[in-house]
């Protein structure tokens, strides 16, 4: 009798390893967060009441924290403000990143590797250090203000640090590579003959861009936007260091609830709702990916 090939084993391994990984490091922790979000707060270590075994009640789960998220406008405005900051940052990243990616994709092939490296190299330094560097650049006695003062263009320092402007600068700066790389990957695959064909058929340069380059780059635009938008919405370090006291972002709220107020269940509820908010763009991202795969087939 012929031996069964080892193939099914390999297949199970290929599916199984990420499955185990995701269960262990995503589903399980998420389950714990979800459980905490549904628990009563307590003065204890950890500051959460167990679900079972509390006298008088057989199950002490509660939706009270989620109710608070809806009723207290602080949370709603923090979510909205985060959405706004993440959206604006994503659009800015796109506006800065697109020409950059286009330049990369059109550069001579021998330069492309080096130029790509230049895009990536900054992220080899810790984000924290790079954000501190921006504090040095944007501060009242920072590089920009000192230069403008020395040139006599202004007589009072411009207030840039601790404003939303600084937050945008920080987010766009930090997440630009995540926008540029997927854009570059799609743009470099556009056959130059398509652009020539469009010009040959009477399209001016702006029309070629709008009708050919942009539609063919849709996959990269969506991928890059998601890679910026999703982490930006929960960003904590950048608004904390560059933002003002009134820069309201959900990441900061979460931090304050968790560490300052020790309100674990509330913080957990904030995190769960954030994930739910992100499911929509994630689904869009996934949908686009499978559609572009289909198109290529």
């Amino acid at each position: 009798m012929p031996e069964t090939p080892a193939r099914p084993w390999g297949r199970w391994l290929v599916i199984g390893i990420p499955l185990v990984w995701l269960s262990l490091f995503f589903l399980l922790p998420f389950g714990i967060v979800l459980k905490i979000s549904l628990s009563e707060a307590a003065v204890a270590i950890p500051p959460v009441q167990p679900w079972f075994g509390v006298e008088g009640q057989w199950l002490s789960a509660t939706f009270e924290h989620f109710r608070l998220l809806v009723s207290d406008t602080l949370y709603l405005s923090a979510y909205l403000s985060s959405l706004r900051i993440a959206t604006v940052s994503t659009v800015l990243c796109l506006l800065v990143g697109f020409p950059l990616a286009l330049g990369l994709a059109r550069a001579a092939p021998r330069w492309q590797g080096i130029l790509l490296l230049l895009v990536i190299i900054p992220s080899w330094t810790s984000l924290l250090i790079r954000v501190y560097a921006w504090m040095g650049i944007l501060g009242n006695t920072g590089v920009i203000n000192n230069m403008l003062l020395a040139l006599g263009l202004i007589d009072q320092p411009l207030v840039m640090l601790r404003t939303d402007f600084a937050v945008y600068v920080g987010i766009v700066y930090a997440y630009l590579p995540f926008m540029v790389l997927p854009l570059y990957a799609t743009l470099v695959r556009i056959d130059p003959a398509l652009l020539e064909a469009a010009a040959d058929l009477g399209a001016t340069a702006p029309t070629v861009f709008l009708r050919v380059v942009l539609p063919l780059a849709t996959g990269g635009i969506i991928a890059g936007s998601m890679l910026v938008f999703i982490p930006a919405i929960g960003e904590f370090v950048i608004p904390e260091l560059l933002g003002g006291a009134d820069t309201l972002m959900i990441g900061r709220v979460l931090w304050q609830e968790f560490f300052n107020n020790r309100a674990w269940p509330l913080a957990a509820a904030v995190a769960v709702v954030l994930l739910a908010v992100l499911l929509a763009p994630l689904w869009l991202f996934h949908h686009q990916q499978s559609r572009s795969l289909e198109l290529e087939r």
């Binding site: 056959d191 003959a193 398509l194 020539e196 064909a197 469009a198 010009a199 040959d200 058929l201 009477g202 399209a203 001016t204 050919v212 539609p215 063919l216 849709t218 198109l295």
Partner: peptide
Amino acid sequence: QPAHRRPVNMMFQAYALFPH
């Protein structure tokens, strides 16, 4: 005259049809 103004059209080697 730039390409887009010429009364000339070309059929490209690999056809260069717009995939989208």
